[in-house]
Write a protein that binds this DNA or RNA. Structure first.
Lengths: 206, 206
DNA sequence: TAGGACGCTATACCTATGTATAGCGAGGCG
DNA sequence: CGCCTCGCTATACATAGGTATAGCGTCCTA
């Protein structure tokens, strides 16, 4: 879905941004160095500063580019439930950067955008639901956005746990099937849920 | 469930470890400094090295302590489904460290332990399930472990999305209710799931 | 009481890395 | 042709922070 453009075709500025996203995605913001990014981009470290001013500002430019990419993707993908999308394929090479962005605490707009998407989806899905949900849609959307994104953020762990390479077709197939199963079999039966809700209504405990 | 002991009662070594877990939890491993940790622990920076040798080794000691705490907690909590536990209460003050540990890629043993716990739970839950699951239990366990942990890892985002303070009783109540709803209402209906599975069987697409 | 082990501090060192500045060369423009 | 702008490089600077070393006081032991 998302594929990285040929570095040859890009302006130096864009190459730096791509390199930054790769480095930050791979090592995190702190461990990514301007010198390393510059080398990958094939430019001098000074040029990075020349174009972006500071490391922080470079990150912000990356964030902005990520958001733009995400919004474009959302248009392509339509209104499918977030949790059923293929986490690897959707964000393509940017997924590592996305994971870092979320995990390291910045990139709030990105998460918030996903909450909004989820909210819209819920609004539609709730129409043909027998029992009226008693929690507000935004909270549910936030929780399920987190759950959907967890596969991206914790990809390495999931990968190890499943014993496959998530980049391989087999890995993605296995992941999608597992997701499918989890999303179509609730952890709680209606009775258990009712009991738990009653317990919550009775009084707060751990 | 987990409460931090009074710093006064701890040996310097333990105080350093607690301070490290707090600093790393708050700022991440890279941004946490030995000097800062030492100050919080009320000791000289040199003592940190004296006791732990290096920053890496200090982190490993923290990891070890976290695993020990987790295993003790698991005994207390019993065999409840991971996703229904209160993410804030369970790990107490260590949850920020846990979040960093998972997000920054180390702490594999911790995740793996949770997969194992989930696997055991699934093995039991599958016995009274009408349709036989066609994905292996470990994959499902890995996926749902990731989803359960996402609320810890992405706590700040969820907090912002829900518009509450997850440390407050109200926040926890709201979170638990949202969790309850999400876990008792599958995103996919059996028909949708069947269709999706059929699509997967037909051939790989995004 | 002498001596050593140990917990701990103070200080110094050194590297990595973000940032700042000076200058170069090519292309556009008068 | 002369000059200026601008993308870009090379170099230097400053500092944060991990690591290393020397030494001090206290308690335990012979």
């Amino acid at each position: 879905m998302t594929t990285a453009p040929d570095p040859e075709d890009l302006t130096a500025r864009a190459r730096i941004r791509e390199a930054a996203m790769r480095h930050i995605g791979e090592h995190g913001f702190e461990r990514a160095t301007i010198r390393g990014i510059a080398e990958t981009a094939g430019v001098s470290p000074g040029l990075v500063r020349h174009h972006f001013g500071s490391k922080q500002a470079l990150r912000e430019a990356c964030d902005e580019h990520l958001v733009k990419t995400m919004l474009r993707l959302h248009d392509e993908v339509g209104n499918r439930p977030l949790g059923t999308l293929n986490p690897v394929a959707v964000m393509g090479p940017y997924r590592h950067y996305l994971a870092r962005a979320l995990a390291e605490g910045w990139a709030a707009p990105i998460f918030d955008e996903m909450v909004r998407i989820g909210e819209r989806w819920y609004a539609e899905a709730d129409r043909d639901r027998p029992d009226p949900p008693d929690v507000d849609p935004k909270s549910r959307a936030a929780v399920s956005a987190a759950m959907a994104l967890s596969l991206t953020v914790l990809a390495r762990h999931v990968e190890r746990g499943m014993g496959v390479d998530l980049d391989s077709p087999q890995g993605q197939d296995k992941l999608l099937r597992a997701l499918l199963d989890v999303h179509s079999h609730p952890i709680l039966t209606p009775e258990q849920a009712a009991a738990a809700r009653a317990a919550l209504d009775a009084g707060p405990t751990s």
